[in-house]
Design a protein around this nucleic acid. Structure first.
Lengths: 400, 400
DNA sequence: CGTTTATGCTCGCCGCACGAGTTTATTACG
DNA sequence: CGTAATAAACTCGTGCGGCGAGCATAAACG
């Protein structure tokens, strides 16, 4: 029989050991710059427990206290922040044209330290370049790096890339990205991670169920419930672009027919205008959105795309019941370019009982930084667990 | 400032107090008839802790130990089961034609104690009848009843019924169902709760993300992740029938256009056959499924519906990435009646990378009992929390 | 410069689970 | 039939995280 201690449901595993400590670290992460007194109040901790917990965390290099800018009477409290020698995570964002590599401490703010346009789209070359960057960062910070998290513009499944249309990749193994095989490597879809970031600290902060939708080449997104993306059994959830809202006669490169994708992005606009399929649908769409004012044909084509977008989004709202929708990438400019048609289609597609108070549809707040923030958040989720802190404590303890 | 102890994020609230006890009770619930030794092994508890926890739970009337049928050498262990004087929940299922009221102990098995066909579809009359039944059961068991949970064939939002097409109800207040306003009343959609039951103890047990789809009048269902339904911000998620997979020319009674609903149920079959819209689409569909063998026109109509069902389901699989799909209500007979067309449409609608190992699509295991099981499970989720057990302990303690 | 106020610190206590050792109930075997 | 083997339950001392109460401290107010 397997060791009982390894059972995931084990009481031993979800020990009380780090409960208070984790709660404090989560507060610090959720709201950088919180004071110790505020955290204690919010968590219902006595000042005694707060003292004890912060002391423990300080000793473990998990947290630093700095003087607060005093604002009132009473003994001044301290501001909680990440420890200067504390754990770090590496966040990478691989996009269509370039990649970025950032470092984040426990407050989750990614600090971009390396970035480069793809010299060559060949996956091996791109991965080698990023791998070198990760290794440099890893070497610089040593054991402080606790996880590497990658956001990639691709369909991700079970921690691997299955297909990346915009990059022109097939299945690709990203495991070469970690410098150290013992450091956990997390792979996530960029739109999913951007959605996580929006829901935790962006435009959807505080929502119960936040739907994030982004348009680049095709549609990406995710539903985020309680801060966690609903990404299915293998992590490939959120491929809303491949719901058959579109024309069944159109075959999508994904292999299915009638994909929503094909009716809203640059390919759809080009089709409506009468242009040949663009090599780079994203750039084509951006261009078209600029030409809307002067050219009625483009205006009509963009309007049709916005309508298809609004109608499909209404269906998603019917099915998923979010309390807010955030739009990333080209989704917001597309809506803005044909707002009346978008809104009409959205309203018309909603179930009647939803029309009285439909969820607000707002622009994403984090913009291009979303995926990187989300990747850092995913990595920190890994670090800020009982297992993660046990490992860190063992490492800090050994170094003394 | 609000009392810190009331904060949901409070460390105090998620106290360690009931951690081990809850884990043991969950095991007993997940697998009725487990032995104490097996639970201890699975949870990684020492025999000492197991002794202590079971003793505590026995004293609180939360658990009873009975002699196990001995199977090997060594000191015999005991079987854990619900205590004869322990907490109970009332589960109600309101369907198109009738309702049922059941009682369940902590093992979650609902025992139907009252059932009746609707004499009259008038909501007030139905609710009054059910309310009387609930009150009778409540009176019989007194304070042992800890929650009332209702599964209803209706769109549910924020704990209230918004619209019930099959019952012909508009917004209806179900609060009159509780005998005692202090007893929590939980309202859930029947298809959602059936999905929960399938995922926890039915055909999808053990799945990471289980998609349940049922067809009655329209389509219902839910995605269940980690035993909890993904039901959005207000509990109205899972209305997959109102995704616009269908013909945009068709206006759905829900107010939207092109709803998937309209292309798969009895209404769709009638349309394809050339019959007028049936008054009871469920019965019509059942009838049609029987006539498939002899009548080519019906066979073709059912085939079209099965095809629309398979194609839409493929889209949902693309978007939600379940590792299993369970079919309830007429969904399974519909598939069976036109299996080749259903499967062809399903496969054709999947993204290419999913075709190698698509999620299994299986019949629901719990059948008609699903919603009642799910309602009981939802009620027990309420009871088996730290708050729930604290309240119970206070009640048991006071009675001595 | 004392008072007020908000916060941090110290220390004894409690409850839960752990671990090691002991006891008990049953089967297997000579 | 009695003894060994085995599996599980019971007992009790320990450790750890958080609680509470009381005390100490750093600012702002008047």
């Amino acid at each position: 029989m397997a060791s009982p201690a390894n059972r995931s449901g084990s009481v031993r595993a979800r020990n009380a050991r780090w409960r208070g400590a984790l709660a404090v670290l989560e507060e610090m992460r959720r709201e950088p710059g919180v004071t110790r007194a505020a955290v204690a109040r919010r968590l219902g901790l006595t000042t005694g427990s707060a003292t004890e917990i912060t002391a423990r965390l300080r000793d473990l290099a998990l947290l630093a206290e700095t003087q607060a800018a005093t604002l009132g009477r009473g003994r001044p409290t301290t501001v909680l922040g990440p420890h200067p020698e504390g754990p770090l995570v590496i966040a990478v964002d691989i996009r269509q044209e370039d990649w970025r590599c950032a470092v984040a401490a426990l407050d989750g703010a990614p600090d971009v330290v390396e970035a480069e346009a793809h010299a060559d789209r060949d996956p091996a070359a791109v991965i080698a370049a990023i791998g070198r960057a990760v290794r440099r960062v890893h070497d610089r910070h040593g054991h402080r790096v606790r996880a590497v998290s990658v956001a990639v513009a691709a369909t991700v499944r079970s921690g691997g890339v299955v297909q990346a249309a915009s990059l022109g990749w097939d299945a690709v193994d990203l495991r070469a990205l970690t410098a150290d095989p013992r450091t956990p490597l997390l792979i996530g879809n960029d739109a999913t991670l951007a959605g996580v970031a929006e829901a935790r600290l962006g435009a959807a902060a505080g929502a119960v169920a936040a739907l994030h939708i982004t348009i680049e080449v095709g549609i990406g997104g995710t539903l985020v419930v309680g801060g966690r993306p609903v990404d299915g059994a293998t992590g490939a959830g959120g491929e809303f672009g491949h719901l058959p809202f579109g024309d069944p006669a159109l075959r999508c490169p994904c292999g299915a027919r009638g994909c929503w994708d094909m009716t809203v992005d640059g390919r759809a606009i080009a089709r409506h205008v009468g242009d040949p399929p663009p090599r780079d649908p994203r750039t084509y769409a951006l261009e078209a959105l600029r030409r809307v004012r002067g050219e009625p044909a483009v205006r009509a084509a963009v309007g049709r795309a916005a309508e298809a977008f609004g109608g499909g989004l209404a269906g998603l709202i019917n099915a998923l019941d979010p309390d807010i929708v955030t739009l990333g990438g080209l989704a917001e400019p597309l809506r803005a370019a044909a707002e009346p048609r978008f809104t009409a289609a959205l309203t018309d597609g909603l179930m009647r009982f939803r029309r009285a108070d439909p969820p607000p549809v707002v622009a994403a707040a984090l913009g291009e930084a979303g995926a990187l923030h989300g990747a850092a958040a995913a990595a920190l989720d890994h670090v800020l667990t009982e297992d993660g802190l046990n490992a860190w404590a063992a490492f800090v303890g050994a170094g003394r």
